[in-house]
Nucleic acid binder design. Sequence first.
RNA 1: GCCAGCAUGGCGCAACUGGUAGCGCACCCGACUUGUAAUCGGGCGGUUGCGGGUUCGAGUCCCGCUGCUGGCUCCA
Length: 669
Amino acid sequence: MSEPAVLRVVVDGAEREVAAGTTGAALYEGRRDVVAVRTTAVGGAPELRDLSRELADGDAVEAVEVGSPDGLDVLRHSTAHVLAQAVQSLHPQAKLGIGPPVRDGFYYDFDVEVPFTPEDLKALEKEMQRIVKEGQTFARRVVTDSEARAELADEPYKLELIGLKGGTGSPEAGDEVAEGASVEVGAGELTIYDNVRRGGEVAWKDLCRGPHVPSTRLLANGWQLTRTAAAYWRGDQANQQLQRVYGTAWPSKDELRAHLERLAEAERRDHRRLGAELDLFSFPDEIGSGLAVFHPRGGVIKREMEDYVRRRHVEEGFDYVGTPHISKQALFETSGHLPYYADTMFPPMELENAQYYLKAMNCPMHNLIFRSRGRSYRELPLRFFEFGSVYRYEKSGVVHGLTRVRGLTQDDSHSYCTPEQAPAEVEKLLGFVLGLLADFGLDDYYLELSTRGTGDKFIGSDEEWEQATEVLRGCAERTGLELVPDPGGAAFYGPKISVQARDAIGRTWQMSTIQYDFNQPARFGLEFTAADGSHQQPVMIHSAKFGSLERFFGVLVEHYAGAFPPWLAPVQVVGVPVAEDFAPHLHDVVRQLKAQGIRAEVDDSDDRMQKKIRTHSKAKVPFVLIAGGDDVEAGAVSFRYRDGSQDNGVPVAEAVARIVEAVRSRVQV
RNA sequence: GCCAGCAUGGCGCAACUGGUAGCGCACCCGACUUGUAAUCGGGCGGUUGCGGGUUCGAGUCCCGCUGCUGGCUCCA
């Protein structure tokens, strides 16, 4: 059957007839913002294609604009190609890994003899600039496995990807090859892209699935190389370590600039920086990596958090308990932690012929409290709660401010209940957690459901896991929040719902957790006496609301950029007299505030007023109360808020009431 | 743990190709003090993370350790 001369196609929803041989580029001529097309062939799934691809009869085609998520991916991946070309131009011996788009940019991995330096990065940017200016086109070419092997004989990593793809290629093959590698060898046929100069000369080529922007010129000035790092080939620690170069890429220079400005803003919010500036906490080298000390101002916030969550636990029917920081080895063998997690526990200390471990978790000790006497079904659900100090030997490279530490405080609870009670208990805990987040003003988070993975890391039967997972899934889904699956991310003893929050620099951190555990009750031989006199095993629900007090603290600092709502602010009110003579008036106001439990003080220093305002603005004090002659005469004070706005001549009684109410209601001001 | 980079008074920075450490803020002292983000003057403070080496001489070069930063792996 010969090709028809006229093709019937659908372009952005509208039926059209075009001549055979028409390309996407022809359809969108003059549309500089279109970088690729999304084509749905007859009977096929939508697929991103180069603009240069010819249409077939019956194709439905949509424009992929550079600003759309797919368009940005195409742009960023194309930039990665230019980077790779630049690297091989300056370092001919470099072997290619993979080069996918990532959030805000791209990376490309290389095997090079000598790791890249910052100077190399500059040289690479220069070379990339040259390639971009040349306006090379990306030309797609379908090859067979054996052709690809012949052409890429010098590229061992690409050969490996071809091998992994396994010839025919199932739809999932790309995903299983390596994270990000689907951009090189996707489903179906293998393709090589040639970078072609104006004169038709092939400047460079790479095994790649595409699509790409039509010409390197489209990359314009919207990209930048950002950093270098090492990365394991195919993400496996056992593999060769490659050199990764990260970059960012945007449709225009303005958008690049805006991105860089966002990064600068994130840096200003970084809790490590604000922690030092606001005198909240520090990490003395003398104590050790990942071990924080809280200064008086940070201590206020920490105590407010503790007071809040302790009170809330009691209100929710938890019993406050206490357990030690160390324990003999056998306890953690019983719990299963030692066989499974010994390498993240600090090494033991030996005394009196016994091995003592710093505890990395509280549950085993709570189990002993449960077991300390006979338990009745009437007591269930029985809920134990404490601030448990735990120590985990986190690898040196992962310690990070307050969000990844080696010594942390969990607001840890364990609910012991019957299997029948478990769903309601999980529901209750989830409601508790979400209410807590709301009270702290957190809104940027999502839920994650961590389930059993493959391997022998997980204990218990499939049926038990299935049942526990379904209980958690049902509760999580009923919240209506975004729920992200996390296969293989469960604890060894059971599945988990967690709340994931994003920090200032885009990293996500696990905060609140709810875990369903049917294993430990069995390992500890926990039982209760049922109504019929029989002895039965409870299930336990682990839950941490903040997760780690330290991590939650760090996320709060970033969330508020250090400008805490009044109820959390270390200093809530500072009085600034316009001149010395008016200080007594403010002392009187502060006395009234303190009587209401407000953290208030008067700035009696001999700085001038303007300097005092600057000082307390920088300290992000929520209420600065200013008083001069007018205020004293009127029995009033003048508010200055953190945004610089003023409210002058407020009667003292009203001012006090206003502040007390702001603290009580936990609002932001 | 792996790769790379960094490490100067409390904080932020300076010190040409190696020649015996400077500045601002903070802090202390004194003077000043009338309306919303820095008053003026003076002073204290570092042997340049720790240990070793090269050199006539090291903050500057080399090695080891500790810590930090960015990734990777990991994360109960």
